[in-house]
Every structure is written in C-alpha cells, then in structure tokens.
Design a protein around this nucleic acid. Structure first.
Lengths: 196, 196
DNA sequence: AAATTTAACATACAGACTGTATGTATGTAA
DNA sequence: TTACATACATACAGTCTGTATGTTAAATTT
C-alpha cells in the first residue's frame, strides 16, 4: 500500500502532537523524555527533530493547539448571548472551564511561560484567547458599558485572575462547587468596572 | 586561622543562595548549570549537594528567601495605614512592586510553579504573602467591609491578578506609567467587592 | 520510463548536565 | 587524644538533548 508523503507527514505530526500533549501534561516539560514519546508513536527521535526542530519546538506546537481549542470554546460560549456583560462572563467561565482540563492546564498555565519565556508565551496568548478578551473589553468600553480604565492593563489583570482561578479549581476536591464560588468572585470583580 | 563549622556552614549557604538567585533569575532554572554557580562561589558541586540535596532543593531555598523578602515589604507597606481598604491597596501595590524586580520575578512567578509543581508552590505562597492577603480579606469581611464573597476563591483571584500584573509591568518600557495604569485597574477591581 | 531529487525518517555519536558514591581534612565532643 | 561528625572535593555513571550522517521511498524532471 502506497501512502503519499503529504499524508504521512500530516499523520506523523498529528500523532506526535497528541502523544506529546499527554506526556507534557502528566510529566511536565522537563521530565517528559523525547525518546519515550516517539517510542509510543512507533517512531524514533529523528522524526521529531525533522518535523519540530527540537523539544521546545514540539512543545510550542502542542501549546498552539491547546490555545486554539480553548479560544474556540470561549468564542462559542460568548456568542450565546447578545448582552455584552453576559458575553464577557460567559467567555470568562468558558475559559476557566477549559483551562482546568488536565490536557490543557499544565501546558498552558504552568510550563508555557517557563519553557517559552513569558514574553513569547504572552505573544501567543495574545494571538488567541487573550485577543478575544481584549476585543470584548475594547468594544464594551466604546459602547459605554465600562468605567474609565486602561484596557490593556485590565486585560492582563483579568487574564491573570482567570489563570490562577483555573489552577485553584483544578486541585480542589469539589470542582463544581469551587467553580461556583469562583464565578461569584469573578462576577463581583467585573462589577467593579461597570459604569455607574 | 581557624573557622568554626557553624560559621563556615552559614557563609557557604548564604553565598550559594545569593549566587544561585542571580543565576536562576537571569538564565532560568533549566539553563542555570550547578557547576557554574559553585565555581563562582569558589566551591564544587559537592558543597551544593551537601547543603541542599539537589538542584531543586537549592531552588526551593532560594524561592523561600524571595518569598520572605516580599512578604516583609508587603507587611511594612500595609501597616502604614489604619484604614483597611487603604491597607489592602497598599499591600497589593507593594507586592506588585516587589514582584516586578528582576531578582524576584522569574523565580517567584515563572519558574516557581513549574519547578516545584503548582501545589507545592502554592503551599509556600500560602505561608508567606498570600497568607497576608487572605488574613486581610478575612478581617475585612468580618468587619463588614466586604460584600458577601467566598474568601478563599477571592484570595486566589486577586493573587493571580497581581502576579500577572507584575509580569506585565516588568516588560513595559515605561514601568512607572504602567504601574499607575495597573493601580487604576486594581483599584476598580477591588471596588467590586466594597459593600454597598 | 529512467534518472534525479527530495522528503521522511532511522541510526550513531558527541556533549552537557545531574546525581551519587567515595575519599579526605578539619573541627568537635567525650 | 581519640573517636566521630561535618564540610566539603573528586571521580564516575546515567540520562538526555541535539546533530551529523545514512537510507528508503515518493515525487519530480528529463
């Protein structure tokens, strides 16, 4: 049976991304050995270095797919409402819910900044979910929904709050309850920016 | 000349902590080589492993001293006012100001959670600056200054917000200006929790 | 259709780094 | 002063990443 190179390439990359995501999530970047990953994929490290350049390149590609998935979730949930305030809260809750998941959490929130450096990580973040948040805030400000506040600073403040929220919820025994509590705290936090 | 063992021990540990802090801050945990650090201290890796067990142990000790310094700053600044709201805001600003510093930032906010794991990092955090924040919030809630909100969730939300705030400010060209903007955003954020 | 090129790997090896086992000298306590 | 513990130094083994080179099959060119 004959397999096209394009197809082979795509399949190999997809397989490595999936396996690496699992390894990075459970072991962390530093303790995930490239040899173990490629072995699980039925390949050798040659394939990895061919497609991703180095271990960090593989991690970056994995993080990119994590970001895309989360941004999609956030966008979908936010779009379910017409009211800007509800859109904002829906999006925030969707982000936290996604970020809590095992296959996203460590890669996105723990190892991401450490492995790529905060600036590179932040740049990636800006091109995905943070972008959505800032656009929403910007639009709300222009429509007069928000009190006078520097948008960029606010975006980072909220983003940081939600990142930690996800990490906190993730390790609590009753996650549903913790999410409720956190939603309450987040709702009040956002209230501070409602124009009076 | 004869040096007591206790004194020798103390000096060696102090020297290694200081040098390691600089190396971890500039190179990051992963790229800081133990050999380089001990060489700079005029020692060998034997000394490091004797006193700290392993590289992670050294990092943990460094982080501990970072935490202590920051908590001290926060406490000092907060104590400068009698008004609980002002204490809270002073403390928050002091935390951000300290966390921004080069010798604290990466160790505390970037590599800390990645190297020690989030749970261990959080536990250390709780024993230092986060403890102060939660105590302040708790006391404010009991005195009727705060709206009804789960304190633990709130503590993490605010802590996360400030962590990201520090990282954002750190990489902005005009840090003084950015700190002002962030203070404005933080002030409004806290307003959300003021009892109405 | 044959020849050539190129993409997708596999293999082998070098270098860096951590951790451990062991040796040694000096201070300390009985 | 002798026995022991502490504070290291030294040597070595194991792991892991990255790179250089080889190989095979598909794609492209002639």
């Amino acid at each position: 049976m004959k397999v096209s190179k394009a197809q082979q390439r795509q399949e190999t990359i997809a397989k490595l991304l999936e396996i690496a995501r699992e390894h990075f999530s459970t072991q962390g970047y530093a303790h995930a050995a490239t040899e173990d990953m490629v072995k699980e994929a039925g390949l050798t490290r040659g394939a990895l270095y061919h497609h991703f350049g180095n271990k960090e390149g593989l991690f970056r590609a994995v993080l990119e797919s994590v970001q895309k998935e989360i941004a999609e979730q956030v966008e979908t949930e936010a779009a379910k409402s017409q009211d800007p305030w509800e859109q904002l809260l829906n999006g925030c809750r969707a982000f936290v819910t996604s970020a809590v998941e095992h296959r996203n959490r460590r890669i996105l929130l723990i190892d991401g900044p450490s492995v790529l450096g905060w600036e590179a990580w932040r740049k990636m973040d800006e091109e995905h979910s943070m972008q959505l948040l800032q656009a929403q805030l910007q639009s709300m400000a222009e429509q007069g929904y928000l009190a006078a506040v520097p948008i960029e600073a606010l975006t980072h403040l909220l983003s940081g709050a939600m990142n930690e929220a996800a990490l906190w919820i993730a390790q609590m025994p009753d996650q549903a309850h913790s999410l409720e509590q956190m939603t309450r705290a987040m709702t009040l936090m956002l209230e501070g920016y409602r124009v009076k």
